[in-house]
Amino acid sequence: MRYGMRDVTETGLYPISHIPHPTSVHAVFNTEGCILMKNVWEAAVALATGFATTFKHLFRKPITEEYPEYKRVLPERARAVIILTRDPDGGERCVACYLCSAACPVSCISMQSAEREDGRRYASWFRINFARCIYCGLCEEACPTSAIQLTPYFETCERDILKLVYEKEDLLVDHGGKDKEYNFYRYAGVVTEVGDKGTHIKEGKPVNIKSNMP
């Protein structure tokens, strides 16, 4: 339908910017004008097409997938329950950098960062309130260590809403999720048990500040 371009129709279907010219009202009563007949015909056809379409739908098989009886296999990147993954060396990937909680539009993530004896930063507690989560995936996008990931699993209904508040032990899994390879501490130049200064990927030996050699 060249909707915006018609200057008048018999049913008054014109854009609001086109205040009808008085003559267009007369056109309705202008029984001699073939424009009117043409427009009425067009409208009738348009209406009939619509009714025909919906009528045909009546005899089509519904496309509804009836959920509990039939469970569709969701794509790997479907966004539902959030997990905290581990790096290939088995360490917790989460460094409690607060980027996910900052990115979260509904503030459902909270945590406390702490330092392990070897200097590794980790979350002493980590909490996601799934009653509030909107599964937007912004936390996963914000995560610099691939720790927080969304999984396709979504069947978490509870009668008690407090059971939807997940603590770190509920979230932590023993695999790397979608990213099997990455270990943040192999790249970042901080000292942990993963690596000393100068042993990380693409690092030179530490500078000897007591030597005059270039």
Binding site: G189, V190, V191, K197, G198, K202, E203, G204, K205, P206, V207, I209
Partner: peptide, 20 residues
């Protein structure tokens, strides 16, 4: 190329040093 690295120092209870 490779990144230059430094060793850090203990500077007391108030300041943490991370020269990299």
């Amino acid at each position: 190329g490779l990144k230059r690295t430094y060793r850090d120092q203990y500077l007391g209870p108030l300041v943490q040093h991370e020269m990299n």
